Computed example of a mutant assay.
Amino acid sequence: MARYTGPSCRLCRRENMELFLKGDRCYTDKCAIKRRNYPPGQHGQGRTKTSAYGVQLREKQKVRRIYGLLEKQFRGYFQEADRMKGVTGENLLSLLERRLDNVVYRLGFASSRSESRQIVRHGHFTLNGRKVDIPSIQVRVGDIIALREKSRTIVTVNDALEAVVRRGVPQWLELDRDGYKGSVKGTPTREDITTPIQEQLVVELYSK
């Protein structure tokens, strides 16, 4: 599966905000955007004038990078959201939030979405009692996501669970830390997504 393998901190600097792509490092003074708060490259500190299209493009790139998707994958989610009933932008965010790798991250089993994608791909989780290794699976209300018995000694997972208090668990999910499992209580609403995202700009970009 194709994925971005370049420096993560470069993406945060390009979008001029913390995307929390490197887990706990993003909360420390080592965070690149705290030390160099300007876009990467030799012209990063120069003055730039952004057009309306540029603003829409940057917003789309920001959302895509937050969830770790390539352009073809992201456009596919938009097309699916556009076919659904309701507001397209909110449908898009709901689809992205209900990805299995994002749910594992939201529950606190990983410190970043890239880390959660990796442990899902390695088959450390079960979905409703069955082993899964596909990060893009869409979870549904009532689903149970559990860490497999033999995977409960993984240091990074236990460290992430210790730090989940700082990030919190969304209201549409429920975490059972002692049982190393979580459940989907409902469908994520716009209010549950606290990341500063202007999804309407993404809709306007793809609707041209």
Results as ranks from 00 to 15, higher is better:
Gln79Leu: 08
Gln61Glu: 14
Phe78Glu: 12
Phe74Tyr: 14
Val63Thr: 09
Gly68Asp: 01
Tyr38Met: 11
Val55Ser: 10
Arg65Cys: 05
Arg35Ile: 11
Gly46Tyr: 00
Glu80Gly: 02
Pro39Lys: 09
Ala52Asp: 13
Asn37Gln: 08
Ser51Asn: 00
Gly41Gln: 07
Leu57Trp: 03
Arg47Leu: 05
Leu70Lys: 13
Val63Ser: 02
Ala52His: 09
Lys85Asn: 14
Gly46His: 05
Pro39Gln: 11
Thr50Val: 15
Glu71Ile: 05
Gln73Tyr: 00
Gln56Arg: 14
Lys72His: 07
Leu69Lys: 08
Gln56Tyr: 00
Gly54Ile: 08
Phe74Trp: 11
Val55Leu: 12
Asn37Asp: 15
Thr88Cys: 10
Lys85Gly: 11
Leu69Cys: 11
Glu59Gln: 01
Gln45Phe: 08
Gly54Met: 09
Arg36Ile: 06
Thr48Gln: 15
Gly54Asn: 11
Thr88Leu: 06
Ala81Trp: 02
Gln61Asp: 06
Leu70Val: 12
Phe74Gln: 14
Arg83Lys: 15
Glu80Thr: 10
Gln45Trp: 04
Arg35Val: 09
Tyr77Ile: 04
Tyr53Glu: 08
Arg64Ser: 05
Lys85Val: 07
Lys85Tyr: 09
Leu70Gln: 15
Tyr53Asp: 07
Gln45Arg: 12
Asp82Met: 10
Ser51Tyr: 00
Thr50Trp: 12
Lys85Ala: 08
Lys34Phe: 03
His43Tyr: 04
Val63Glu: 04
Thr48Ile: 13
Pro39His: 12
Gly68Cys: 01
Gly76Tyr: 00
Leu70Pro: 08
Ala52Glu: 14
Tyr53Ala: 06
Gln56Asp: 08
Val55Ala: 09
Tyr38Ala: 15
Gly54Asp: 12
Asp82Gln: 14
